[in-house]
């Protein structure tokens, strides 16, 4: 069974690009526009990995991260921030809150692949 990836970003374009790249890696993808909808998806089924934007309406990436890590089974998904926020304070904050990896936008297929390898999602 293929691994599942939940893509959370308020930009339709970013979701589309990320989805294309990650589907090419053989993942089954769902994409949603904010943290709240992402929470709803995780309540239905935990994905293997979440690609998570930081700044989004309704529920931010950081709120989502804290919420999901507090859920039963919420420690299982690998969470990869993927955001324009590229300073060390944001990175440190994200990692301390339980993120597994961090991508600073703009990203490329090569960058996502290298991050996925490091967190054990790809060989």
């Amino acid at each position: 069974m293929s691994k599942t990836c939940l893509i959370v970003d308020d930009s339709h374009v970013v979701r589309k690009i990320a989805r294309k790249i990650i589907e090419d890696f053989g993942f089954e993808c769902i994409d949603v526009e904010d943290g709240q909808v992402a929470m709803d998806e995780c309540t239905k089924a935990m994905p293997d990995v979440v690609i998570l934007d930081w700044n989004m309406p309704v529920m931010s990436g950081m709120e989502f991260l804290k919420n999901i890590r507090a859920m039963v089974g919420g420690d299982a998904p690998k969470i990869v921030f993927c955001t324009i926020e590229n300073d060390i304070d944001h990175i440190t904050h994200a990692m301390e809150a339980g993120a597994n990896e961090y991508i600073m936008k703009p990203f490329s297929a090569e960058i996502i692949e290298s991050k996925f390898r490091y967190i054990g999602l790809m060989n």
Partner: peptide
């Protein structure tokens, strides 16, 4: 550049072995 470090440096190593200088 941000692009160069992200090609291969895990985020934990970036935090540990690098310092941000502007962009």
């Amino acid at each position: 550049t941000q692009f160069e470090v992200q090609r291969g440096v895990p985020i934990q190593y970036l935090m540990k072995y690098f310092t941000q200088k502007n962009d």
